[in-house]
C-alpha cells in the first residue's frame, strides 16, 4: 500500500484515495501491532503462564516438576515476610508516585517551553533514565558508602552521624525510594512535557486571567485521560477551553502582542475553536 498502484477497492474506507500522488495508508489495525504482540506473547505472556503453572508444583530446574496443588499458595499465606513485602511494595508505589509527580510535573511543564538553554537542560535531566540499572546501582552504591561516599558528608548534616543510610532498618527504604525516583523522574517529566506541549499555543498568548485555569484543566485532563476517563474529561476540557475563548472573543484582544493594529484575523468564527483545539497551531492573521 505504499505506492500509487493501490486500487480504490483496496483502499480503506474514509481515506483519500483519489489523487495518484497520495500514499494510501489505512488506519493502523491489528496487523501493525502483530510483531510486537507476537514478541510480547512469546517472551512475556507465555513465560508468565508457565510460571502460573509452576506455582502449583515443586521444581528444582533439574528434575521434572512435581504437582503439589495449592501448597505453595498456602505457604505464602502463612509467611510473615510475604505480608511485609506486600506492605513495602504498596508503600513504595504510593510514595514513588507522590515524590515523582511533585517534581516531574513542574519539570515537564518547564521543559515544554522555549526558554534559552532548555534543550541542554532537558538532555541533562534525561541522563538518569538512559543509565542501565546496573550502572545506577554501582553509582549509588558508591555514593551511599558510609565511610567514603557522599553519605559520609551528608549524613552528619541530617542527623545520621555514621552515614549509615542503606544499612539502617528505618532509612534503607527511603534510600531506595530516593534512587528509584531519581532514575524514573525523567520518564515522567517526559510524559508531562508531551502533555504540556499539546496545549494550544494560543492559550499562552496575552496574559488572560483564565489562562492558568485552562492550562491546569488540560494537564489534569491528560492525567485523567491516562487513567481511562478519556472521553468525558476531553468533553469537559473543551467546554472549559471554549469558555476561555469566549472571554477573549473581542478581536482586539485576540491580536498578537507584536502585530500591527491594522491586522485582521481571518478565522475568528466561534465554531472553529474546537478544531483549533484539536490541531494546535497559531491562529492566522493577515496584515494589510
Amino acid at each position: 500500500m505504499t505506492t500509487g498502484t493501490a486500487t480504490p477497492e483496496r483502499a480503506a474506507p474514509g481515506t483519500a484515495a483519489s489523487a495518484g500522488s497520495h500514499v494510501d495508508v489505512a488506519r493502523p489495525g491489528f496487523g501493525w501491532a502483530a510483531p510486537a504482540v507476537v514478541f510480547f506473547a512469546l517472551f512475556a505472556l507465555l513465560p508468565m503462564l508457565a510460571v502460573v503453572y509452576l506455582s502449583f508444583t515443586t521444581y528444582d530446574g533439574l528434575n521434572p516438576p512435581v504437582w503439589t496443588g495449592l501448597a505453595n499458595w498456602q505457604a505464602i499465606g502463612a509467611d510473615p515476610v510475604f505480608g511485609e513485602s506486600l506492605r513495602l511494595t504498596a508503600l513504595l508505589t504510593v510514595l514513588s508516585w507522590v515524590a515523582q509527580t511533585a517534581i516531574s510535573l513542574p519539570l515537564g511543564v518547564y521543559l515544554a517551553g522555549h526558554q534559552r538553554g532548555r534543550a541542554v537542560l532537558a538532555a541533562v535531566f534525561f541522563v538518569p533514565l538512559l543509565m542501565s540499572s546496573a550502572a545506577v546501582a554501582v553509582l549509588w552504591g558508591t555514593l551511599f558508602d558510609p565511610n567514603f561516599g557522599l553519605a559520609s558528608v551528608v549524613g552528619p548534616l541530617v542527623g545520621v552521624p555514621d552515614g549509615n543510610f542503606v544499612g539502617s532498618r528505618s532509612l534503607a527504604f527511603y534510600a531506595v525510594l530516593f534512587v528509584v525516583s531519581w532514575q524514573f523522574m525523567p520518564f515522567h517529566a517526559l510524559l508531562y512535557q508531551g502533555a504540556a506541549r499539546s496545549i494550544p499555543a494560543m492559550l499562552y498568548e496575552g496574559g488572560h486571567p483564565g489562562r492558568s485555569r485552562a492550562v491546569a484543566a488540560v494537564l489534569v485532563g491528560h492525567r485523567a485521560a491516562a487513567a481511562g476517563h478519556d472521553r468525558r474529561v476531553r468533553r469537559d476540557d473543551r467546554r472549559r477551553v471554549a469558555h476561555v475563548l469566549r472571554d477573549r472573543a473581542d478581536p482586539d484582544q485576540r491580536r498578537p502582542r507584536h502585530a500591527p493594529a491594522s491586522c485582521r484575523c481571518t478565522c475568528t468564527s466561534r465554531a472553529s475553536a474546537p478544531s483549533r483545539w484539536a490541531t494546535p497551531r497559531r491562529s492566522r492573521w493577515c496584515c494589510s
Partner: peptide, 12 residues
Amino acid sequence: TNFSAVNYDNQG
C-alpha cells in the same frame, strides 16, 4: 556502627 552499609565490591 555502619558495617551493614559497607560493600565489598566497590572496595568499601
